[in-house]
Amino acid sequence: MELKRILEKYPKRQDCLIDVLLDVQNTKSTRHLTEVELARVSEHLGLPESHVFSVVSFYSFFSMTPRGKHILQVCRDVPCYLNDTFNVHETLESMLGIKTGDTTEDGLFTLEYSSCLGCCDQAPVMRVNDTVYGNLTPDKLRAIISECRSDDDA
């Protein structure tokens, strides 16, 4: 079982909690955590469930609701805004036919905002799961989305 294998990689120490949770969430195509998983993590690390829950609700990386396989996070801070000549966000909304915070019906994409991604030298910037894409243009957005789609067919 996947969860068991992940848990066994980590020593039973509280300071591994965030890394364990990230690992569990990132291996799932729904990129979210369930109550059962939180219970198992707390059992493994010997922590109260309430503690694990408070950590999950504090950090914006964690989600308790299922999300798309590809999470598009568009940076909305000032250096990106200053270089956003075509409105990255609205362009994505119309390309995907969803609003911010929503997931496409096929479960492929979730559209989110992000705080500064620390790549302001490539503004405007977005992140798709762990990969950052900068110097965005409408063409680039189309290419990124079709690449995600074809990944899924493979």
Partner: peptide, 11 residues
């Protein structure tokens, strides 16, 4: 942790 918008030198 470099999260301050506009900073990317640590990266």
């Amino acid at each position: 942790d470099e999260g301050e918008p506009g900073n990317f030198k640590d990266r």
